[in-house]
Every structure is written in structure tokens, then in C-alpha cells.
């Protein structure tokens, strides 16, 4: 027996409400992140991720409140990312009840932030979130052919995505959340090439994200080296259930909880 591959639903939270369609039955309030978190917990989710998409920093108090209320009612690990800019932001989220905090854009501007966070709070609670895409035609080539993006995948940075993941590990992060912006929303499967390349250079846990559309998409992501698989809309729309994904993984010989 070994550690189980984790299946992680991700909720986009805007000003304390879940955005993107949610099609859960039997919920009193399908827009309440806390209630959805409870529903996913009951379905067998191994961990939860909140992506805070609140634009204005003045509205971010609502996020802390959501994290606080979720941590009070859901007894599985909770990761929160989105808009994290400083060690103080990380501290507030951890104190509100997050177990791990995802850092993305702010680390691109100032990579030392990753080291500062992992030194202060421990590597185990700092996740580097990498939004990667294939360098588009006409873009500046990178060694791996993948680059880090910002602004939801719209803006290329010219930074090699594979090297960036390795750098994150060097700087002390405890996990990599690898999101393929090319696959994201396509529901045609994970970007296996990207997962394989990043797996080859990091030995911290790797979460694969982007592209899940059917249960059979999950085992290949694990075979490519993912320690955990994350999806958003396919779970929210009820197109896939957590249990179905786990059944598929189990049938493929993958250990699950």
C-alpha cells in the first residue's frame, strides 16, 4: 500500500460566492462554497481547492470568511489560491483555516516570495501554481516549448514553464499545481506531455489540472506522473462524479482512498 492519488475539485470563489455553473442537486444554496465543500467531502473528495477570483482587494474579506467557515465544517485538507501577494496574505489564509496556500503571479514577479513563505510557514503548506501553455507561433521559444502565463493564460511571460516548476522546488515549495492553459476548458484530456516533462524535474507532489472531460482522462495523467488530479467544471456540472473518477483510477490499478 502506498499514498493514494488524490482527486481534488476546485471551486472558483468570487466575493464569497461560487462562480461558474454549479449543478449539484439537493443543495439549498448551490452558490455557497461551504455547502459545496461539504457536498464534495461527502462524495469522497480527498482535498478541496478554492481559487479566489475576487478582483478587488477590498472584497477579499469575504474570502477569509469563506475559508473560516469551510474549515469549521469540512475535515479534509483545504488549499486556497488566487491573489496571494505577500507572506502576510499567506499568514491570514493559514490562520483563517487553509492548510495550504497557492502562490502564482506574485512569485513570477518576485520568486524570493516562495522561499520566504516556505521558510516562515513550512514547505508543506506552500503550493506553486503554474499556468502553462505551449509557446504560440511567433512567441519567444523556450527550451521545453512551454511557457508560464498570467492573466488566465492570455499573457505569455517567456519563462520556461518546466524550468519554473523546478525553480519553485528549489525555492522551497512543497507542491506544484500544474495547470495546462491549452487543455483548460477543452475537456479533451490532460496535457500528458506537460505533466511528463515537469515530473521529470520535480520530486515534490505534482497536481495535474486542465482538460479533464471524462473518467478515462484521469489514469493517463497519473501514469504521466501526477500525484493528484484536479478538475473544476466537470465536477460542478455533475458531468463527472468524484466516485466515478475513483472507480476508473482503481480499475487502472491506481491506489485511491
Amino acid at each position: 500500500m502506498s499514498v493514494a492519488v488524490r482527486v481534488i475539485p476546485c471551486l472558483d470563489v468570487d466575493r464569497g460566492r461560487v462562480v461558474k455553473g454549479v449543478n449539484f442537486t439537493n443543495l439549498v444554496d448551490a452558490g455557497d462554497p461551504v455547502e459545496l465543500a461539504r457536498a464534495y467531502d461527502a462524495e469522497g473528495a480527498d482535498e478541496l481547492t478554492f481559487l479566489d477570483v475576487t478582483a478587488s482587494s477590498s472584497d477579499r474579506e469575504t474570502t477569509f470568511d469563506v475559508v473560516r467557515r469551510t474549515a469549521e465544517q469540512v475535515f479534509i485538507p483545504l488549499t486556497v489560491g488566487g491573489g496571494v501577494r505577500s507572506t502576510d496574505d499567506v499568514n491570514r489564509l493559514l490562520r483563517a483555516g487553509a492548510d495550504k496556500v497557492g502562490v502564482n503571479t506574485a512569485a513570477i514577479a518576485r520568486p524570493e516570495l516562495l522561499g520566504e513563505c516556505s521558510q516562515r510557514f513550512g514547505a508543506q503548506c506552500i503550493v506553486l501554481s503554474v499556468d502553462a501553455r505551449r509557446v504560440p507561433a511567433g512567441g519567444r521559444p523556450t527550451p521545453s516549448g512551454f511557457e508560464v502565463t498570467t492573466h488566465g493564460g492570455r499573457t505569455g511571460t517567456g519563462i520556461d514553464a518546466v524550468e519554473w516548476a523546478a525553480r519553485g522546488q528549489e525555492l522551497g515549495v512543497g507542491e506544484i499545481l500544474l495547470n495546462s492553459m491549452d487543455a483548460d476548458g477543452t475537456r479533451t484530456g490532460f496535457d500528458l506531455d506537460l505533466i511528463t516533462r515537469v515530473r521529470a524535474v520535480v520530486d515534490v507532489p505534482l497536481i495535474a489540472s486542465g482538460g479533464a472531460g471524462a473518467t478515462e482522462h484521469f489514469p493517463p495523467a497519473v501514469a504521466a506522473g501526477a500525484d493528484a488530479v484536479l478538475a473544476a467544471s466537470v465536477f460542478h456540472f455533475g458531468q463527472l462524479r468524484i466516485g466515478e473518477v475513483k472507480d476508473e483510477l482503481r480499475a487502472a490499478g491506481v491506489e485511491i482512498r
Binding site: 493514494a4 492519488v5 480527498d46 482512498r257
Partner: peptide, 28 residues
């Protein structure tokens, strides 16, 4: 191969355990 050890794992509890009483052997 992968560190941190992060996620749900099984344990091997000895006979006479009180902490793990009533829990299946394959619980994570």
C-alpha cells in the same frame, strides 16, 4: 521518490491499539 509525503495513506496498527479501535485495516 516524492517528498513531502502528502495525501491519504494506510497504517499498520499493532494488536491492542485503542486509538485505531473500530477502524478497518485499510482505512486511510
Amino acid at each position: 521518490d516524492v517528498v513531502p509525503h502528502m495525501g491519504w495513506n494506510t497504517v499498520r496498527a499493532p494488536e491492542g491499539t485503542r486509538l485505531f479501535a473500530g477502524l478497518d485495516a485499510d482505512i486511510r
